[in-house]
Structure formats: C-alpha cells, structure tokens
C-alpha cells in the first residue's frame, strides 16, 4: 500500500476490519507481526524511541474521540504541542494558536473547556492541535462518525482545504462512503486486514468489484452475507420442537 504525498488518501472498509490498527501501525503505536512500514523514507517499525518521537513531531493525528486533554482549555490544548516541542515565546505561541483556531473556525471558543464543546467542535479543535506543528502528514481516524450534517460538511471542507493549502499528505480512515468519496483522491478498500481494491473514487464507483459495490452502495446482501453462518433454519426449528 502506497500513500502518495500531498493527496487525500482514504482507507475504507467495514467496522473491525483493521483500519484504526493500520493508523496505529503507521504512527508506530503498534508493532507489525510481519511487513515493513516506511514514512518519509524512515522505517517506522525499526526506529528507536527517540527517532520515532522525532518522526511523530512531523505527523498529526485526529482521533475518533478528539482526544483533547480534558483539564486544559481549547487554547491550551492547541498550544500544547508548541509548548512541548518549541522554544517559542508565549506571545508567538498565542498568535500561532489563534491562527490555527481561526483556520478551523473556533477562535471564539478558545476559552472553553473540552466538556463544553460539541462533538464536531471537539474534532475541529483536535484538528487545529494536529496542525499546530505544521506536520507533513495527518492521519484522520473516522473523522465523520457521529457528526450531524453541518459538522460533517464543515469537516469535509476543512480536511480538503487544509490538505491543499498546506500541502499536507492526508490519510483518512472511514466508513462514511459519501463524504469520503467526495474528497479523496485515492481510495483503498480493505476487508479482514487485506486490500480488496484501490482506485480513484470514480474508478471504484464505475469499475469496482462486487464486494466494493456492495460496500459503496450499502447493499444488505451480497459477498458479505446478511445472515451469519448457521445451520439450516428448518433443522434448527426442528431441533427446538
């Protein structure tokens, strides 16, 4: 699997198929049983702790829950990576944080605590924090799950705009077909830990295989059967009687 620079690459597949695990492998939070992972030429699963942390400074990650630090305000959450990894003055950090918050439309929410934010706002703050250090790539873990249509639209637009404006490589894991296909340049469809198909959204829509078509169109029956494997119904009922 190759993730091109400067593009929005989506990894789609049903729940429990290993999408989040893949992001954790790329971020070095998990070690693969086999295979190799390279990010910007660096062999992630062979890096020592120090080198891995250096690499992570150039990666951003948006977690499904936002993963904001609950004891810090919105402002302090976005300032956190800057305070940890740079020696910038507080006045410079303030300017940078306000610019990042402005980019996600939440400059006015800087004094709120994470508990006061809606789910969509929390993800936007997490996005501002993820881009605080101007990373070369951002990984999005199910960015649209549980969002109302407006928040979803905002996130879709933000991900695309940030990718294009900052020339970031975006890797997005999702099973929200419509939103993902709308902004992705390239899509990998995976199932049970394996790549089933890949291509541009248009290619997958028009030439995708049976499994991909079922997934994209949300068909209840197909290669992924509606029924969980079981004995014949008549036999089962007979056994009960």
């Amino acid at each position: 699997m190759d993730i091109p620079r400067g593009k929005v690459t989506a990894i789609m597949g049903p729940s429990g198929t290993g999408k989040t695990t893949l992001l954790k492998l790329i971020g070095g939070q998990l070690q693969p049983d086999s295979g190799d992972i390279y990010v910007d030429g660096q062999h992630v699963n062979a890096l020592n702790n120090k080198a891995l942390y250096q690499l992570r400074m150039r990666m951003g990650m948006l977690f499904q829950s936002g993963a904001l630090l609950t004891d810090l305000t919105v402002f302090d959450n976005v300032a956190f990576p800057l305070r940890e990894h740079t020696k910038l003055s507080e006045s410079m950090i303030r300017k940078l944080v306000l610019l990042k918050l402005e980019a996600v439309g939440l400059r006015g929410a800087r004094d709120l605590m994470p508990s006061e934010l809606s789910g969509g706002m929390a993800r936007r703050v997490a996005l501002a924090r993820a881009i605080a250090l101007d990373p070369m790539m951002i990984m999005y873990d199910e960015p649209f799950t549980g969002q109302d249509p407006i928040s979803m639209g905002v996130l879709v637009q933000l991900i695309r705009k940030l990718n294009d404006a900052a020339r970031i490589s975006s890797l997005m894991v999702s099973h929200d077909v419509a939103e993902t296909m709308q902004i992705a340049d390239w899509v990998y469809v995976i199932s049970e830990g394996k790549v089933v198909e890949s291509g541009s959204p248009e290619q997958l829509r028009s030439q995708g295989g049976e499994w991909t078509q079922q997934f994209i169109k949300g068909l209840p029956d197909g290669p992924v059967p509606f029924h969980f494997p079981a004995d014949d119904l008549a036999n089962d009922l007979g056994a009960c009687l």
Partner: peptide, 9 residues
C-alpha cells in the same frame, strides 16, 4: 488522551 500524547511525541 494517552494515545494522543504519544502521537504528539
């Protein structure tokens, strides 16, 4: 939050 910290190096 702990995973988030790890990913922020």
């Amino acid at each position: 939050q702990l995973s988030g910290l790890e990913m922020m190096a």
